[in-house]
Protein backbone atom coordinates (compact mmCIF):
# COMPACT_ATOMS: atom_id res chain seq x y z
CA UNK A 1 0.00 0.00 0.00
CA UNK A 2 1.21 3.48 -0.79
CA UNK A 3 -0.69 6.52 0.31
CA UNK A 4 -1.70 8.40 -2.84
CA UNK A 5 -4.44 10.54 -1.37
CA UNK A 6 -4.98 12.18 2.02
CA UNK A 7 -8.41 13.44 3.09
CA UNK A 8 -9.31 15.24 6.27
CA UNK A 9 -13.11 15.38 6.55
CA UNK A 10 -14.86 17.37 9.27
CA UNK A 11 -17.94 15.17 9.60
CA UNK A 12 -18.56 11.44 9.89
CA UNK A 13 -20.84 11.51 6.83
CA UNK A 14 -18.13 13.10 4.73
CA UNK A 15 -15.61 10.54 5.99
CA UNK A 16 -17.94 7.66 5.03
CA UNK A 17 -18.37 9.10 1.55
CA UNK A 18 -14.59 9.31 1.06
CA UNK A 19 -14.29 5.69 2.16
CA UNK A 20 -17.04 4.43 -0.14
CA UNK A 21 -16.26 6.55 -3.21
CA UNK A 22 -12.52 5.95 -3.43
CA UNK A 23 -11.58 4.12 -6.67
CA UNK A 24 -8.97 2.09 -4.75
CA UNK A 25 -8.45 0.89 -1.19
CA UNK A 26 -9.37 3.46 1.46
CA UNK A 27 -8.62 3.29 5.16
CA UNK A 28 -9.39 5.33 8.23
CA UNK A 29 -6.36 7.11 9.69
CA UNK A 30 -6.53 7.60 13.45
CA UNK A 31 -3.14 7.79 15.21
CA UNK A 32 -1.40 6.03 12.34
CA UNK A 33 0.96 4.08 14.58
CA UNK A 34 0.00 0.88 12.78
CA UNK A 35 -1.37 2.16 9.46
CA UNK A 36 1.57 4.40 8.52
CA UNK A 37 4.03 1.57 9.17
CA UNK A 38 1.88 -0.88 7.19
CA UNK A 39 1.73 1.56 4.27
CA UNK A 40 5.49 2.09 4.11
CA UNK A 41 7.74 0.07 1.86
CA UNK A 42 5.14 -1.81 -0.15
CA UNK A 43 4.30 0.27 -3.20
CA UNK A 44 2.05 -2.17 -4.98
CA UNK A 45 -1.42 -0.92 -4.15
CA UNK A 46 -2.61 2.70 -3.99
CA UNK A 47 -4.30 3.76 -0.77
CA UNK A 48 -6.49 6.68 0.26
CA UNK A 49 -6.29 7.61 3.92
CA UNK A 50 -9.20 9.35 5.58
CA UNK A 51 -7.96 11.20 8.66
CA UNK A 52 -10.80 11.31 11.17
CA UNK A 53 -9.02 13.41 13.79
CA UNK A 54 -10.52 16.59 12.34
CA UNK A 55 -13.97 15.39 13.50
CA UNK A 56 -14.46 16.69 17.04
CA UNK A 57 -16.57 13.78 18.31
CA UNK A 58 -13.86 11.31 17.25
CA UNK A 59 -11.24 12.81 19.56
CA UNK A 60 -13.31 14.02 22.53
CA UNK A 61 -14.49 12.20 25.62
CA UNK A 62 -17.59 12.93 27.64
CA UNK A 63 -18.02 11.56 31.16
CA UNK A 64 -21.51 11.88 32.66
CA UNK A 65 -23.65 10.16 35.27
CA UNK A 66 -24.70 7.71 32.56
CA UNK A 67 -21.17 6.69 31.71
CA UNK A 68 -18.41 7.49 29.26
CA UNK A 69 -18.65 8.35 25.59
CA UNK A 70 -15.14 8.02 24.23
CA UNK A 71 -14.09 9.35 20.85
CA UNK A 72 -12.27 6.30 19.47
CA UNK A 73 -9.40 8.38 18.02
CA UNK A 74 -8.63 10.36 21.18
CA UNK A 75 -4.91 9.90 21.78
CA UNK A 76 -3.86 7.71 24.68
CA UNK A 77 -1.81 10.66 25.98
CA UNK A 78 -4.94 12.80 26.24
CA UNK A 79 -6.98 9.94 27.71
CA UNK A 80 -4.42 9.08 30.38
CA UNK A 81 -4.25 12.77 31.36
CA UNK A 82 -7.98 12.71 32.19
CA UNK A 83 -8.06 12.15 35.96
CA UNK A 84 -11.87 12.17 35.96
CA UNK A 85 -11.98 9.18 33.60
CA UNK A 86 -9.17 7.43 35.43
CA UNK A 87 -11.11 7.68 38.69
CA UNK A 88 -14.06 5.76 37.22
CA UNK A 89 -12.33 3.37 34.77
CA UNK A 90 -8.77 2.97 36.13
CA UNK A 91 -8.10 -0.30 34.31
CA UNK A 92 -9.07 1.17 30.94
CA UNK A 93 -6.65 4.04 31.48
CA UNK A 94 -3.97 1.57 32.61
CA UNK A 95 -4.34 -0.30 29.34
CA UNK A 96 -4.07 2.92 27.31
CA UNK A 97 -0.97 3.84 29.30
CA UNK A 98 0.73 0.58 28.32
CA UNK A 99 0.48 1.11 24.56
CA UNK A 100 3.97 1.91 23.29
CA UNK A 101 6.22 4.78 24.29
CA UNK A 102 5.26 8.31 25.35
CA UNK A 103 5.63 9.35 21.70
CA UNK A 104 3.42 6.52 20.48
CA UNK A 105 0.80 7.40 23.11
CA UNK A 106 0.74 10.90 21.66
CA UNK A 107 -0.85 9.38 18.56
CA UNK A 108 -2.20 5.91 19.34
CA UNK A 109 -5.83 5.61 20.42
CA UNK A 110 -8.12 3.09 22.06
CA UNK A 111 -10.27 2.86 18.93
CA UNK A 112 -7.24 2.44 16.71
CA UNK A 113 -5.91 -0.30 18.96
CA UNK A 114 -9.28 -2.06 18.75
CA UNK A 115 -9.71 -1.65 14.97
CA UNK A 116 -6.19 -2.91 14.31
CA UNK A 117 -7.50 -6.09 15.97
CA UNK A 118 -4.18 -7.55 17.03
CA UNK A 119 -4.66 -10.49 19.42
CA UNK A 120 -2.18 -8.80 21.78
CA UNK A 121 -3.84 -5.37 21.77
CA UNK A 122 -3.84 -4.05 25.33
CA UNK A 123 -7.22 -2.36 25.26
CA UNK A 124 -9.30 -5.45 24.37
CA UNK A 125 -9.46 -7.06 27.83
CA UNK A 126 -10.00 -3.70 29.56
CA UNK A 127 -12.81 -2.77 27.13
CA UNK A 128 -14.44 -6.15 27.74
CA UNK A 129 -14.16 -5.78 31.53
CA UNK A 130 -15.84 -2.38 31.27
CA UNK A 131 -18.74 -3.62 29.09
CA UNK A 132 -17.87 -1.31 26.21
CA UNK A 133 -20.27 -0.96 23.28
CA UNK A 134 -18.89 -0.11 19.83
CA UNK A 135 -21.02 2.39 17.93
CA UNK A 136 -20.44 1.88 14.22
CA UNK A 137 -21.66 4.22 11.51
CA UNK A 138 -21.59 3.28 7.86
CA UNK A 139 -23.31 3.83 4.53
CA UNK A 140 -26.36 1.90 5.79
CA UNK A 141 -26.78 3.65 9.13
CA UNK A 142 -25.65 3.14 12.68
CA UNK A 143 -25.40 -0.04 14.72
CA UNK A 144 -24.06 -1.08 18.10
CA UNK A 145 -21.87 -4.10 18.77
CA UNK A 146 -20.66 -5.30 22.20
CA UNK A 147 -16.88 -5.06 22.20
CA UNK A 148 -16.39 -8.79 22.78
CA UNK A 149 -18.07 -9.38 19.40
CA UNK A 150 -16.18 -6.65 17.52
CA UNK A 151 -12.97 -8.51 16.74
CA UNK A 152 -13.55 -11.65 14.72
CA UNK A 153 -10.03 -12.93 14.12
CA UNK A 154 -6.39 -11.91 13.85
CA UNK A 155 -6.51 -8.47 12.24
CA UNK A 156 -10.20 -8.91 11.48
CA UNK A 157 -13.35 -7.27 12.81
CA UNK A 158 -16.97 -6.57 11.99
CA UNK A 159 -16.28 -3.29 10.13
CA UNK A 160 -17.38 -3.40 6.50
CA UNK A 161 -16.57 -1.08 3.61
CA UNK A 162 -17.36 2.48 4.59
CA UNK A 163 -17.89 1.65 8.27
CA UNK A 164 -16.31 3.78 10.97
CA UNK A 165 -16.10 3.08 14.69
CA UNK A 166 -17.55 6.42 15.82
CA UNK A 167 -17.86 5.93 19.57
CA UNK A 168 -17.01 3.64 22.45
CA UNK A 169 -19.81 3.74 25.01
CA UNK A 170 -19.32 2.59 28.60
CA UNK A 171 -22.06 2.28 31.20
CA UNK A 172 -21.35 4.04 34.48
CA UNK A 173 -20.11 1.32 36.87
CA UNK A 174 -22.44 0.44 39.76
CA UNK A 175 -21.52 1.60 43.26
CA UNK A 176 -18.48 -0.20 44.73
CA UNK A 177 -17.33 -1.31 41.30
CA UNK A 178 -13.87 -0.90 39.87
CA UNK A 179 -11.52 -2.50 37.40
CA UNK A 180 -7.86 -3.25 36.72
CA UNK A 181 -5.78 -4.29 33.72
CA UNK A 182 -2.53 -6.21 33.97
CA UNK A 183 -0.32 -7.56 31.25
CA UNK A 184 2.87 -9.53 31.30
CA UNK A 185 5.84 -8.61 29.12
CA UNK A 186 9.44 -9.81 29.38
CA UNK A 187 10.75 -6.25 29.83
CA UNK A 188 9.52 -3.39 31.98
CA UNK A 189 8.31 -1.09 29.17
CA UNK A 190 7.41 -0.98 25.52
CA UNK A 191 6.69 -4.53 24.53
CA UNK A 192 3.87 -6.67 23.24
CA UNK A 193 1.75 -8.56 25.76
CA UNK A 194 2.52 -12.23 26.40
CA UNK A 195 -0.81 -12.32 28.20
CA UNK A 196 -3.19 -9.68 29.54
CA UNK A 197 -6.23 -9.60 31.81
CA UNK A 198 -8.86 -6.96 32.51
CA UNK A 199 -11.18 -7.55 35.47
CA UNK A 200 -14.10 -5.53 36.82
CA UNK A 201 -15.38 -6.32 40.32
CA UNK A 202 -18.50 -5.17 42.19
CA UNK A 203 -18.63 -5.65 45.95
CA UNK A 204 -21.48 -5.38 48.40
CA UNK A 205 -21.21 -3.74 51.83
CA UNK A 206 -19.50 -6.71 53.48
CA UNK A 207 -17.06 -7.40 50.70
CA UNK A 208 -18.89 -10.15 48.82
CA UNK A 209 -18.41 -9.98 45.07
CA UNK A 210 -21.84 -9.44 43.51
CA UNK A 211 -20.78 -8.93 39.90
CA UNK A 212 -17.65 -9.44 37.82
CA UNK A 213 -16.40 -9.28 34.22
CA UNK A 214 -13.20 -10.89 33.05
CA UNK A 215 -11.49 -10.21 29.71
CA UNK A 216 -8.25 -11.85 28.61
CA UNK A 217 -5.87 -10.96 25.79
CA UNK A 218 -2.89 -12.29 23.80
CA UNK A 219 -3.88 -15.89 24.52
CA UNK A 220 -6.31 -16.49 21.63
CA UNK A 221 -6.90 -15.04 18.13
CA UNK A 222 -9.04 -12.32 19.76
CA UNK A 223 -9.47 -10.92 23.26
CA UNK A 224 -12.05 -13.05 25.07
CA UNK A 225 -14.85 -12.51 27.56
CA UNK A 226 -14.51 -15.34 30.09
CA UNK A 227 -17.86 -15.71 31.75
CA UNK A 228 -16.82 -18.84 33.68
CA UNK A 229 -14.07 -16.84 35.40
CA UNK A 230 -16.56 -14.15 36.42
CA UNK A 231 -18.99 -16.80 37.73
CA UNK A 232 -16.20 -18.29 39.83
CA UNK A 233 -15.81 -14.94 41.58
CA UNK A 234 -19.46 -13.90 41.99
CA UNK A 235 -20.91 -14.78 45.40
CA UNK A 236 -17.50 -15.20 47.02
CA UNK A 237 -15.28 -12.97 49.13
CA UNK A 238 -12.51 -13.51 46.58
CA UNK A 239 -10.92 -16.13 48.77
CA UNK A 240 -8.07 -18.29 47.49
CA UNK A 241 -10.36 -21.04 46.22
CA UNK A 242 -12.49 -18.59 44.22
CA UNK A 243 -9.42 -16.90 42.76
CA UNK A 244 -7.89 -20.26 41.85
CA UNK A 245 -11.13 -21.27 40.11
CA UNK A 246 -11.24 -17.99 38.16
CA UNK A 247 -7.60 -18.45 37.14
CA UNK A 248 -8.32 -21.99 36.00
CA UNK A 249 -11.33 -20.79 33.98
CA UNK A 250 -9.13 -18.23 32.20
CA UNK A 251 -6.47 -20.86 31.51
CA UNK A 252 -9.14 -23.21 30.15
CA UNK A 253 -10.62 -20.52 27.90
CA UNK A 254 -7.26 -19.62 26.38
CA UNK A 255 -5.86 -21.12 23.18
CA UNK A 256 -2.53 -19.34 22.74
CA UNK A 257 0.32 -19.92 20.33
CA UNK A 258 3.99 -20.44 21.03
CA UNK A 259 6.24 -17.65 19.81
CA UNK A 260 9.49 -16.09 20.97
CA UNK A 261 7.68 -14.22 23.75
CA UNK A 262 6.26 -17.31 25.38
CA UNK A 263 5.14 -20.89 24.97
CA UNK A 264 1.58 -22.18 25.00
CA UNK A 265 1.98 -23.68 28.49
CA UNK A 266 3.52 -20.52 29.86
CA UNK A 267 0.84 -18.22 28.45
CA UNK A 268 -1.97 -20.43 29.71
CA UNK A 269 -0.51 -20.34 33.19
CA UNK A 270 0.32 -16.63 33.20
CA UNK A 271 -3.11 -15.53 32.02
CA UNK A 272 -4.64 -17.23 35.07
CA UNK A 273 -2.19 -15.53 37.40
CA UNK A 274 -3.00 -12.16 35.84
CA UNK A 275 -6.75 -12.70 36.26
CA UNK A 276 -6.22 -13.48 39.93
CA UNK A 277 -4.03 -10.43 40.55
CA UNK A 278 -6.19 -8.06 38.52
CA UNK A 279 -9.27 -9.25 40.44
CA UNK A 280 -7.58 -8.43 43.75
CA UNK A 281 -6.52 -4.97 42.57
CA UNK A 282 -10.00 -4.25 41.18
CA UNK A 283 -11.58 -5.40 44.46
CA UNK A 284 -9.28 -3.17 46.49
CA UNK A 285 -10.27 -0.24 44.29
CA UNK A 286 -13.96 -1.16 44.43
CA UNK A 287 -13.95 -0.72 48.22
CA UNK A 288 -13.34 2.99 47.70
CA UNK A 289 -15.55 3.44 44.63
Amino acid sequence: MAVVEYQSPTSVEEAISFLTSSPHAAKVLAGGTDLIIQSKGKYDEPLTVVDIKGIASMVDAELTDDGLKLGPAMSCARLTARDDIKAVYPGLVEAAYLIGSTQVQGRASVGGNLCNSSPAGDTGPALIANRAICVIQGPNGTREVPVEEFTTGVGQNVLEKGDILVQLKFPRPAARTSDAYLRFIPRTEMDIAVAGAGVSITLDGDGTCTDARVGIGAVAPTALLVDAAAQALIGTKLDDAALAAAAQAATDASSPITDRRGTIEYRRHVVGVLVKRAALIAAERAKGA
Partner: peptide, 14 residues
Protein backbone atom coordinates in the same frame (compact mmCIF):
# COMPACT_ATOMS: atom_id res chain seq x y z
CA UNK B 1 1.82 16.48 22.16
CA UNK B 2 5.10 14.55 21.95
CA UNK B 3 5.03 12.26 18.89
CA UNK B 4 7.31 10.39 16.48
CA UNK B 5 7.40 12.50 13.32
CA UNK B 6 8.05 9.32 11.31
CA UNK B 7 4.52 8.21 12.29
CA UNK B 8 2.77 11.42 11.21
CA UNK B 9 1.85 11.99 7.57
CA UNK B 10 3.16 15.32 6.31
CA UNK B 11 -0.32 16.51 5.20
CA UNK B 12 -1.50 16.06 8.80
CA UNK B 13 0.64 19.08 9.74
CA UNK B 14 -1.86 21.43 8.06
Amino acid sequence: ELVCSCLVLAPEAE
